[in-house]
Design a protein around this nucleic acid. Sequence first.
DNA 1: CTGAAAGCGCTAACAG
DNA 2: CTGTTAGCGCTTTCAG
Lengths: 339, 339
Amino acid sequence: MKKISIKDIAKMAGVAPSTVSSVLNNKNKEARISDALADKIKLISKKVGYRPNSTAVSLRTGKTNIIGLIVEDISNPFFALLAKALEDEIKKHDYRILYCSTENDDINAADLVQMLFHRQVDGFLIAPTAGMKKSLIELTETNKPLVLIDRYYPELKIPSVLVDNKLGITMCMDLFWAKGYTKTGFITTNVEQVNMLEREEAYRDSLKKNKVAVSEKFILKIPINLPYAEKVKKINLFIKKNPVLDSLIFSTNYLGIAGLEAIKLCRLQIPQDIAIISFDDLDLFRLYTPGITTISQPIDEIAKQAIILLFNQINKNPQQVSQRKPYTFPPHLITRKSV
Amino acid sequence: MKKISIKDIAKMAGVAPSTVSSVLNNKNKEARISDALADKIKLISKKVGYRPNSTAVSLRTGKTNIIGLIVEDISNPFFALLAKALEDEIKKHDYRILYCSTENDDINAADLVQMLFHRQVDGFLIAPTAGMKKSLIELTETNKPLVLIDRYYPELKIPSVLVDNKLGITMCMDLFWAKGYTKTGFITTNVEQVNMLEREEAYRDSLKKNKVAVSEKFILKIPINLPYAEKVKKINLFIKKNPVLDSLIFSTNYLGIAGLEAIKLCRLQIPQDIAIISFDDLDLFRLYTPGITTISQPIDEIAKQAIILLFNQINKNPQQVSQRKPYTFPPHLITRKSV
DNA sequence: CTGAAAGCGCTAACAG
DNA sequence: CTGTTAGCGCTTTCAG
């Protein structure tokens, strides 16, 4: 694993660097280099373990084989699983991932886009923050391949892949209605991201469809960057203030976790005192007693589709007639004992 | 965010590219460029949002400001948290992370080292697989900055940062002894990684110290790449075969998870029928009923120290008198109701 | 004080 | 069939 350059190989083989380059990039035919020579060059470079300097290749070709991944927080289990699934898919194309967490900060996010762009990444996979519109518009103007994941911007025609958020919450509500729960609280974040807004909307729609007036006090919006303990406290208070509630929906995994903790503090029994469903499936929800009913996201499918859309752009695949609507995948309702 | 090069800036300012370069790299003094001119150049490049092409800078300077991170699996909560902590620390140095998962495959791991090396990363953070010795030796011979995390190679003098694995298990055992448990089973993986071996060793040592013969049938080694359901099955069987056991230690988080599932299947009560402790603290363990006693790793401290050691090397800091022993941090025993 | 020139390692056009 | 040449965008002498 020494620093060995194409010139070294050329010297060893007694040819010019360009000849080595052609051979190693399988351009034998175009350059019409004799098979014997090609084999010789290949052999030598294999023997000394030659691998081209990616930086030089990138500078020359303008390609880095690196995709920039921007998520909210790589330590969130949802994003960790998504990142792994994306990594697995992208590996097949011989690409790598440079990842960054936005911490849900718009300025941070815009910076990361800039930084990755100037690092010449070949494409972007972004779970955008709520205030990233400007940054995304700028990015699209550069024609860099770009796919949004987990969230999207309805006004921007950017290929997006995500779970069907409305369907997920509708499934929750339908289950509640079917089981006779009529007073469902909705616990969500205060961020204005489409995915969260759609979840809330589906909650409201379901109430309306069932001719129940939406009661604003049954909706709790928790500031996203509040420390965990504060979140628990807020939920705790919310539950105490609304003893009439017979069921709760947590719109995302960490709220579900905080919710379980809050319910424990209130000494309420699930599902006798209160039934619950959380978005995102976790080991915790599966193994908790009682098992928690969840809306599980099809992470692998989302990752696969995102990579397809990304490489359609990278390879300028014409079939990529970018449809206006985001690609959505239905979630799975995993029913357990919590309802 | 257009492609704007140093030449463009030079033209706009009516100077030579090299002058722009000097100014932007704060080499005004050495180049003795007038403050007025420097300010003018800075202003212009700020106004048009100029950012140098990182690829070109890298090719020229040999620095990429990218660190290669190789872990077992980014979707494992331990590594996800570690990755996030590392990202946070590394950001302060204006570096980024290119990450890869080994899937615990030695060949894969060796490939990743090669790949990252030829991508000119400025340093490596590696949680090595058991069979990575050769690859690591090769890497050290290149003098690339390198820090091992979570695991280490006793024979190789490579700076390493990890939790004190032995202490962790000793704490478990001491707690068991103190509470009167005398038949403790140990459930671990079959991989020959030092961290795992040390955990097992501590278990054996504790028994010996307390004059209890080590019973091999009380140790269960589960193949690491077995599907989750199979792991549960193995543990289930192990418990049924050894009804004499009054307590169990799970040597890593996913075994703890599988263990809870297995115990549920056996319809055993924790801690009445069997007491348990798991390595790694998870939401699941905290919120499970009963709460599971765990050995929590000081992830942030590990990340901080790893970054310190890495940048000591990158900056050729002489104080980095690479000590032979790995840097270890004591874990925290979090006692809950499971013991 | 400033600019011209070389070169990092590679690839692609083109000339032999 | 193969080698020469130019140049990707930047930094770094070094000459003026």
